[in-house]
Amino acid sequence: MTTALKEWPLWEVFVRSKQGLEHKHCGSLHAADAAQALEMARDVYTRRQEGVSIWVVESKAITASNPDEKGELFDPAADKIYRHPTFYEIPEEVGHM
């Protein structure tokens, strides 16, 4: 016997569609453990043929950036347009890239 949980932990669900190669975040759900979270994700998030593969991860395992720090984290990239590969001339012989 294990201790009964009054509240089940939260899990984040990632589903890979037939077309895509990557798993995309599609929502979250409550479940007692990982195996159950996977079963429930199947019933909740793949009812309309959305997926061919599911990942679940406990929400608390995700370390997220702080929205308040958005300025220092992301704004400095705004004026560095030279980081985009748009300043090169591609030789004819390379063809389509």
Binding site: L29, H30, M40, V44
Partner: peptide, 11 residues
């Protein structure tokens, strides 16, 4: 008993 099971049983 919970939302996820409600959907599972309906499935």
């Amino acid at each position: 008993p919970i939302l996820e099971e409600d959907i599972a049983l309906s499935n």
